[in-house]
Computed example of a mutant assay.
Amino acid sequence: MKYGYIRPIVSDQQCTHQLKELFIDTLFIETHGLARKRTELEHLLMTVQKNDELFIQNIVVLADSQQQLLDILRLAERDQITIHFVDEQITNQTIQKASLLQSATFFANLQSKFLSQSSTFTLQAAKQQGKSIGRPRKSDDNLQLAFEMYDSKIYTLYDIKEATGISKSTLYRYLDDRSTSLYDEKE
């Protein structure tokens, strides 16, 4: 049997480009791109049998980490299942035949793809729940005090940081924003 598995990924959040040109007997579709609760993947792994083939658009669709990929590859080897990774143009058998340098390079690149996938969908889920994303803004009172101290030319950046808790780089970023908005008002 030929099985397919698709799920939302950063480059294809609607799953419209995955496995389009392949004939698949049964397609398992995950509804979310998060690492947790991948019920369709679990169902798929319980369904496949010896000599079945599994088609995945790319490795990031199948696994969220190198450890998860390793676990799935071990399962596939034990059950004698061939996994085809379409974008990478490899199978679980060809991965095993690569040189150490090729493998190290491949897995280093893969790690950054895993991180991108995970952080993108985690941030999207947090935004949907109304959670604030990113570093909180400094209070307006602290910022105003930092501006006054800076403009007075009496205080060092260290003095400003000690008094307001605003670091040099943060202060300069706010000063750039302030000068940009003053420039915009003059036009």
Rank of each mutant, 00 (worst) to 15 (best):
L115Y: 03
S99Q: 03
R173H: 02
L110Y: 08
F28P: 07
E77P: 00
K131F: 12
L62K: 04
A98H: 09
A76M: 13
S65P: 01
S118K: 11
Y158T: 12
I133L: 15
V60K: 00
R36H: 10
L45V: 14
I83H: 01
D25H: 11
S181C: 07
L69S: 08
L75C: 13
L70Y: 14
Q80P: 00
Q93H: 09
D87T: 15
G4H: 09
V10D: 02
G4T: 05
L145N: 03
M46V: 01
Q129W: 01
A108C: 10
R36K: 14
A35P: 11
L44A: 10
S118T: 14
I6T: 06
L27V: 06
L54V: 15
E88N: 05
Q57A: 05
E148N: 08
I154L: 13
E77K: 15
K168I: 01
L145V: 08
E30F: 03
G134P: 05
G165M: 02
D64I: 00
T105K: 11
I154E: 14
Y150A: 07
H17G: 11
K186C: 01
Q117E: 09
Q14C: 06
T16G: 06
Y155V: 01
K161S: 11
T156H: 07
S99T: 15
S132Q: 15
K20F: 01
P8F: 10
K20Q: 13
Q49E: 15
L143A: 03
I95F: 15
M149A: 14
S65I: 00
Q13P: 09
Y155T: 03
K153W: 02
K2D: 09
S11K: 12
Y172L: 13
T94L: 03
